[in-house]
């Protein structure tokens, strides 16, 4: 026990450049600075009822849509740079949580709020719209109806004000 305390003390005085040690709670993710977790960080309120969750084919469908939009955006020369040096494991997880929370799929959102999550990315409207286009393609791929896609996009659209910085 004493040994552990000494070790902890030694670690706490260690230089601050060891920021990339892995997250204790989410293996495979990098540690992030502490922030207050709340569902409100998702940036919008969830849909009522289960129609939208059904339209997205449940949590499994949401997971496929998230993976598809992330994969497409990484491969898209318009958007690939946005994700440079981002923790993609964490991004996929928090995006899944956010979509699942909004679609009332029984998830809590544990990520940061939209402003904090996009701080210093320097996003422009063209970036936001390119990501929307990739999301539309991902939802097409999951065979989600166009009107349901638009209902979901209507929830995300106002996030332009928090995420686009210039």
């Amino acid at each position: 026990m004493i040994q552990a305390l000494i070790l902890a003390a030694a670690l706490s005085t260690a230089p601050a450049f060891t920021v990339e040690h892995p997250s204790a709670t989410h293996p495979g993710e990098e540690e992030v600075e502490a922030y207050v977790q709340a569902d409100a960080n998702a940036g919008t309120r969830p849909f009522a009822g289960d129609a939208m969750l059904k339209a997205f084919h449940g949590q499994a469908g949401i997971g496929r849509v998230v993976d598809e939009v992330v994969d497409r955006s990484l491969a898209d020369p318009r958007t690939a740079e946005i994700f440079h040096s981002q923790d993609m494991v964490r991004l996929r997880r928090t995006l899944r949580e956010q979509f699942c929370y909004i679609l009332d799929g029984g998830c809590r959102y544990s990520g940061r709020d939209m402003k904090a999550a996009h701080k210093d990315l320097g996003l422009q409207n063209a970036d936001f719209n390119a990501l929307v286009e990739n999301l539309q393609l991902a939802m097409d791929h999951e065979k989600i109806g166009f009107r349901d896609q638009n209902r979901f996009l209507a929830k995300l659209a106002p996030m332009q004000r928090q995420t686009v910085e210039r």
């Binding site: 919008t44 996009l153 209507a154 929830k155 659209a157 106002p158 332009q160 004000r161």
Partner: peptide, 9 residues
């Protein structure tokens, strides 16, 4: 205003 983004208004 913005016809597209401001879906919450």
């Amino acid at each position: 205003g913005d016809a597209i983004y401001n879906q919450d208004s």
